[in-house]
């Protein structure tokens, strides 16, 4: 395993780790809210990753204005993407949370196992 290369691509590794942690939470935790949190962790990992790709070492803000002349600009597109992504993620979370509310209303619990009528009654 080439550690220097791994270090170089640290953003990949970290976001993958975060993504998987989120996935684990979603899969394993019985509580619906915890599952949602896991989902958010996943989202965050992806956003983090996207932002990190746009990073250019020593780059400047990509503002095209009078007098600013730089060949070293940070790529603006990822940032724009993330904004949209966050909006989408928020709406997903919102829907999920509202569902959670309703579920709690109807079932009186947020435990997935209990909701599905499996495991302990």
């Amino acid at each position: 395993m080439n550690f220097s290369r791994m270090f170089h691509n640290l953003n990949y590794v970290v976001s993958a780790l975060l993504f998987l942690m989120g996935l684990y939470t979603v899969v394993v935790k019985p509580n619906l809210i915890k599952k949602l949190i896991g989902l958010n962790i996943m989202e965050t990992s992806v956003f983090l990753f996207i932002v990190s790709i746009g990073m250019v070492e020593g780059g400047e803000a990509p503002i095209v204005a009078e007098g600013v002349k730089s060949s070293q600009m940070v790529n603006p597109i990822p940032q724009a993407l993330i904004l949209t992504g966050i909006v989408v993620a928020v709406s997903t979370t919102a829907v999920a949370l509202s569902l959670c509310l309703k579920i709690h209303e109807r079932y009186g619990t947020l435990n997935a196992a209990e909701i599905l009528g499996r495991g302990e009654p």
Partner: peptide
């Protein structure tokens, strides 16, 4: 609700 939540979780994971 239950079906929707199940769908949501799987859908969201796949979206991400």
């Amino acid at each position: 609700l239950r079906a929707a939540f199940k769908y949501l979780l799987m859908g969201a994971i796949s979206s991400l």
